[in-house]
């Protein structure tokens, strides 16, 4: 199955451009301001795209105080924003997605998928969850957490669509993304299947009821 959960569940088509869409910083007369916004976009890609892809953020129209509060909320929820990148990030969010923002209309290129259950391509019989557990503890646990429920900086990997197929799981492990480093030198395709086998053995128990 070629359903690539890591790119996006559904191909998106930009159907109509309504007004201005300042997704990239506009060329500022002021170079310093331009650089600040460019650094802000990098901080955004690194700190704000781990848990949700950008459309949710790019369609907001918030003022400076609201963006400040939103950054605080997200840091509280597990976003990692270094103190030195925060001013750039904030400036970028206000400039690009402030009250004047007129987001483009995006529509789904395809109807909503209707599968009732996801389709798993299991790791080959040669893959070993036991080896995977060791590899995971060595290379992944410090970011994604020892139980793979998320850590710093890395999100939950348990019961995710990204585990369903060898690719693109192996690709993200090999190439990395944003703050996730590339492991191509360290983790072979078969080791990646070991790790996937271990991650698939973890179950997302219901959220604990305090």
């Amino acid at each position: 199955m070629n359903h690539h959960p890591l790119t996006t569940p559904i191909a998106l088509t930009l159907a109509l451009l309504v007004g201005l869409f300042p997704i990239a910083p506009t060329p500022a007369q002021d170079d310093e301001e331009g650089e600040r916004l460019a650094l802000g976009r990098i901080a955004f890609d690194n700190a704000c795209r781990m848990c949700h892809e950008p459309a949710l953020v790019e369609q907001q129209r918030l003022n400076a105080a609201q963006w400040d509060a939103e950054i605080d909320k997200m840091i509280g929820w597990g976003a990692r924003v270094a103190p030195e990148e925060r001013p750039n990030l904030h400036a970028y969010l206000v400039a690009a997605f402030g009250p004047q923002n007129q987001p483009a209309l995006q529509v789904l290129a395809d109807p909503i998928p209707k599968p009732v259950a996801h389709h798993l391509v299991p790791p080959p019989p040669t893959a070993s969850a036991q080896r995977g557990a060791l590899l995971y503890a060595q290379h992944c646990a410090n970011c994604h957490g020892p139980d793979a429920r998320g850590g710093d900086p890395g999100q939950n990997l348990v019961d995710q669509e990204s585990l369903l197929t060898p690719e693109p799981f192996a690709a993200i492990v090999a190439n990395g993304r944003h703050r996730m480093p590339a492991f191509a030198e360290v983790i072979t395709a078969s080791a990646s299947e070991d790790i996937r086998a271990w991650l698939l053995s973890l179950t997302g128990e219901p959220s604990p009821n305090p």
Binding site: P9, A15, H52, A55, L56, V107, I112
Partner: peptide, 12 residues
């Protein structure tokens, strides 16, 4: 076609 408000997770 559904109008996208967020791609992943999907809000549309």
């Amino acid at each position: 076609r559904l109008i996208v408000r967020g791609e992943r997770p999907l809000n549309a």
